[in-house]
Design a protein around this nucleic acid. Structure first.
Lengths: 185, 185
DNA sequence: TATGTTTCTGAACACCATGTTCGGTTATAC
DNA sequence: GTATAACCGAACATGGTGTTCAGAAACATA
């Protein structure tokens, strides 16, 4: 299990940074499935025991790279009331955050489950409880999935479209179908 | 005169069947990630070498369970011209197929990538090449993703809604957004 | 610059999963 | 009934995981 560490020590920062970028590079080269702990610590020039002092597993290390995105999400949720208009502001913020960190979000596919669950939890609270014959959980699942779908495509295709336009497209695709349902509640 | 098809050796059928159901059960019990080859062959009462004589890996075995779905997809594509109306007939057929095999499609999440690629290839051909500022590949990606999203939810929640209604919902959600775009091509 | 503390090191270890091989044993098709 | 194929299972090589620990190195501080 990972030790508790004070983040101010330079060695800690360096170690974490090295491991993250090493993993990032290796994912591009071989794909996440084929990356081993040994690969990562060799590339990062970090001792084996050091790795396990910081992260429980490769998955943890991978997940740690998505902290900024998660924090942005948290910030948004704590600062806004969740109304019908605001979801698009959130999605825009996330498109922008990802674009800003170009290259940092290579493997959305592998944190899909995590991200999906995250979105889901908060979406459930904001969506109408009743509507014409579509279960609200299904609606939440749908909205989260569509967002991740577009984000995934966007990242995999190397950001060929600016964040703002992506968000507009997202809205164009998802809004018509969902609005009709949410209004008839 | 119908073609004479040599029926496969019973032992082969039995072995494959045993392995498939063993895997299926184990996934429910422990989750796919934690299932090992040893678990499967123990449960199925099959020799280790036999396993590898039939499947390259656990993934292969998992994938083999989705053959019916894949075949249905193929059948549909070879028998129909791909017009604006037909996608909903295909999705309905697949909802029905999955419902028929209840319990056989436990881990859609693990073949998502496979299924997605499959859908994508064929969707690309049927979608309009130009439309107002949304890349056709993105549109194809979107349609495939939404379908898988609904299917996943449906399976994970143990088929709480009949296939026909699921398809209706799918259509309600996806059609409004995509139609507007495809029409303005 | 000296000091006490924290982090890093790396080799050794136990453990477990993968995938292959092969001589011997069934079960099956015909 | 017989030839053939499929199955068995133990043994083996390979390689990844996660832990441990004593010593070396880097750090903050003063």
């Amino acid at each position: 299990m990972p030790k508790k560490v004070k983040p101010e020590d330079r060695r800690i920062q360096r170690t974490r940074q090295s491991l993250q970028t090493a993993l990032s590079e290796l994912i591009v080269e071989k794909g996440y499935e084929k990356v081993t702990v040994q690969d990562v610590i060799d590339r990062a020039n970090v001792g084996r025991s050091t790795f396990y002092a910081h992260f429980e597993s490769l998955d943890q290390l991978l997940l740690s790279g998505f902290e900024p995105l998660r924090m942005q999400f948290e910030d948004f949720l704590s600062g806004t009331t969740f109304d019908i208009e605001s979801p698009w502001a959130l999605s825009l913020a996330m498109f922008q955050q990802v674009q800003k960190q170009k290259g940092g979000y290579i493997t959305l596919t592998h944190i899909q489950k995590f991200l999906h669950g995250y979105l889901l939890d908060h979406l459930k609270q904001g969506l109408p409880k009743r509507n014409k014959n579509i279960p609200p959980e299904l609606l939440a699942h749908y909205v989260a999935s569509t967002f991740i779908a577009l984000m995934t495509w966007w990242i995999d295709n190397n950001y060929p479209i600016p964040a703002e336009k992506m968000n507009e497209i997202y809205r164009q695709l998802v809004e018509p179908g969902t609005m009709a349902i949410m209004m008839g509640a």
